[in-house]
């Protein structure tokens, strides 16, 4: 009985010592999307939110061509949960990334068009991200399409 009591106390101490501090809720939402010009090396830089990365991988994933980024713009919007929604013209999918240890890790690839988007834009509509394309609207979460509005 004494041993059990000691083990319980020890496990409580260990649990308290190892628990992670969580600040919740945290709103990561950008008020408005950012439209970034891709440079010759395929990189984009966002000054206000201080993020830069290479887009070649995304274009290769979407168009099977890592040089397709040339003369393109990338639209990025971060939602309240901290996921990055990334889209560009002619994309059939919207890419949802999560920031993780110096990398953008693909969380989800949401199919949004069969032919490719002509004039996509992202709006912050908390708790969703709104994708508009020539009058059509989609409400998205990091898990996928929440609702289609026409």
């Amino acid at each position: 009985m004494k041993l059990i009591k000691t083990l319980l106390l020890l496990s409580l101490i260990i649990t308290v010592a190892c628990s992670t501090l969580i600040v919740k809720p945290t709103d990561f939402a950008w008020p408005v999307e950012t439209v970034l010009k891709i440079n010759d090396d395929g990189k984009v830089t966002e000054d206000r939110y201080a993020i830069k990365f290479n887009t070649k991988g995304i274009f290769y994933e979407e168009l099977n061509d890592s040089s397709a980024f040339k003369n393109k713009e990338l639209r990025i919007l971060r939602n309240m949960n901290g996921y990055y929604f990334i889209i560009s013209k002619q994309f059939k999918n919207i890419y949802v990334f999560e920031a993780d240890n110096g990398a953008l890790v693909l969380e989800n690839k949401i199919p949004v068009s069969e032919t490719g988007l002509e004039n996509p834009a992202l709006n912050q509509r908390e708790p969703y991200v709104e994708l508009i394309n020539d009058g059509e609207k989609l409400l998205l979460t990091n898990d996928g399409i929440y609702r289609i509005e026409k």
Binding site: E33, T34, R75, A121, L122, N123, Q124, I132, G135
Partner: peptide, 8 residues
Amino acid sequence: PSLAQSDY
């Protein structure tokens, strides 16, 4: 449709 305007 025109209401579907980009915030940007």
